[in-house]
Amino acid sequence: MALLRCRGLRKEFGGHAVLDHLDLTVAEHQVVALIGASGSGKSTLLRCVNLLEELDDGTIELDGEDISDPRVDPDRVRRRIGMVFQAYNLFPHLSVLDNITLAPRHVHRRGRAAAEVQARELLDRVGLGAKADAYPDRLSGGQQQRVAIVRALANSPRLMLLDEVTSALDPELVGEVLTMIRDLKADGMTMVLATHEMGFAREVADEVCFLDAGRVIESGPPEQVLGEPTQPRTRQFLRRIIEAGRL
């Protein structure tokens, strides 16, 4: 059954269509990688799914519920979706532990003690237990991004949206974040990730979607889209990636 179904999404910014009749279906436990050049609409798509942007057309269904209906309470929808940003977006005035427990305590009304036990457990699992009381600016980029992922997971989301989560990282820090995403896949988490890491997309994704000018112009298993693309735009994009040494 489809966990997420986007149909005919359209989003305009200043008279320019960033998403243009975009369709996307994600089944439960499936990992979908969105690839494509900068400005192809990957980030906008993720922000629309999380209702951070208002759609100009189309519908989004989560668990069969039309969440693009304006009568739907967006806060209630977002509780079921975890989102991780390229720039981490941790709260600089809160410790790692408070960053993670903020939503469990205030959104899910869990007690402070219970929320902290859960947060420490999650941190231990990703090897950041010792950083619980540190402030974000004392952490490396890789550590900050892993905390951001833990923060999203503390809400027990149905779906994770990862927006180029390794793009701001130094090359030697990318691995630790990718390992974490691999573990999430092993746990059966449903994920949509926008990425420039083609090797990683090939390894972890069940399906790769190539976006161009706000549309999915090619999608399928990673071997097919990344190995034998049928669309000329996809071939051109992959050729440039290979030239840049990213595949």
Partner: peptide, 13 residues
Amino acid sequence: SSQLAAARSLGLT
């Protein structure tokens, strides 16, 4: 605004 986006995407009102 990215701080707001992060907070709202956690489900905070």
